[in-house]
């Protein structure tokens, strides 16, 4: 629950079905109530955020989990687009990816990503990471007020 008492809205933009399942599992094990929406590519993610058909009813997320390595519009392009829109640019974006290259990390932070997390190989670690993520973003951090 966020400070408004509503469940926390999370948008996961990820093309890998396996990762989607894993992420869902990890969040299910978390203690904090949340709504996880999933978009399977960059364009879908942008449509969701901009409430373009068929996402007119989509909620504005509190937190975005973004994969970098996606076919079509890449994660970095999605991030750049998000940061261009005044109503979206205040939403924290956490990069969740396999890459640990300096370039990707640097580029992501330059594009104002809030954090950069490398997906662990170990599921236990993955669970821990998602746990920490939830802990940090949903209990420690104050979100910007929704417009």
């Amino acid at each position: 629950m966020n400070n408004m008492g509503q469940p926390i809205e999370i948008l996961l933009i990820e093309d890998n079905e396996g990762d989607i399942v894993l992420t869902k599992k990890a969040f299910e094990r978390g203690k904090i109530g949340n709504n996880l929406s999933v978009c399977r590519n960059g364009q879908e993610g942008l449509n969701f955020l901009n409430k373009v058909d068929p996402y007119q009813q989509a909620p504005t997320p509190d937190l975005i989990l973004l994969d970098l390595n996606m076919p079509g519009i890449s994660g970095q392009e999605v991030l750049a687009e998000i940061k261009k829109v005044p109503t979206l640019k205040t939403i924290p974006v956490v990069i969740l990816t396999t890459s640990e290259s300096d370039e990707d990390i640097l580029k992501s932070y330059q594009l104002q990503a809030s954090s950069y997390i490398k997906k662990p190989v170990d599921f236990k670690q993955f669970g821990t990471v998602i746990q920490e993520l939830q802990n940090y973003w949903f209990t420690v951090v104050k979100f910007p007020p929704k417009s």
Partner: peptide, 9 residues
């Protein structure tokens, strides 16, 4: 990663 994670799962 998929292999590792899902085997553990």
């Amino acid at each position: 990663r998929m292999v590792g994670n899902f085997v553990q799962l």
